[in-house]
């Protein structure tokens, strides 16, 4: 029987980790001091943004093993074996996710810096709660700071997306 590994060792302070990003298997070489946000950006996933680097703004939100999480607080080596969805994995300009469309249609995108994080948080919310009340939306998005919009149109966008997704009979699972 194959023995399950329960550890990794760094070579000169660098861990080689395997992980899934947006459904693709990837191997990252990450320094022991590096956080997931920096590693993702270094490997080209620029959709995760650095707004504070202290876990307080939510711009770096990614879906980490099924839940929205703060990539700036996750030591990169701990992403070994993880499944990650970044905004790039949710939808693209050619083929956007209904949430991305809803944010555009509701006028919820101003500078856009916080939007990838906010959409990823919303995505999970709608996965677990397809018909959230306004209060539930407000509670779920409280870690994604935005200074441009006052959140009014973003909440509207999440409601609209929820409706749209319910119409499709399912929430797209990533």
């Amino acid at each position: 029987m194959k023995k399950k590994t329960t550890g990794l060792e760094a070579v000169n302070g660098v861990f080689e980790i395997s992980l899934g990003v947006n459904g693709a298997k990837r191997t990252f070489a990450v320094k022991n001091t590096e956080f997931l946000l920096d590693a993702l950006r270094r490997y080209g996933y620029k959709g995760a943004k650095k707004g504070c680097d202290t876990g307080d703004c939510g711009s770096c939100t990614v879906i980490f093993n099924g839940k929205p999480a703060l990539a700036c607080l996750i030591p990169a080596f701990t992403a070994h074996g993880a499944a990650i969805t970044t905004i790039e994995g949710l939808g693209t300009v050619r083929d956007p996710h209904p949430l991305q469309e809803a944010f555009v249609e509701a006028g919820a995108v101003q500078c856009g810096f916080c939007i990838p994080g906010m959409i990823l948080s919303s995505k999970h919310l709608l996965d677990v709660n397809p018909e959230p009340s306004e209060e539930e939306i407000k509670k779920y998005l409280d870690g994604n700071l935005c200074r441009c919009t006052g959140y009014v149109k973003q909440i509207k966008a999440v409601k609209a997306a929820a409706k749209k997704l319910r119409g499709k009979g399912r929430v797209s699972g990533v």
């Binding site: 620029k46 959709g47 956007p96 555009v104 500078c111 856009g112």
Partner: peptide, 14 residues
Amino acid sequence: LKMDALGLACGEPV
């Protein structure tokens, strides 16, 4: 529609 909104919502490197 705000013309750059979709790119921003998709996390384009802008």
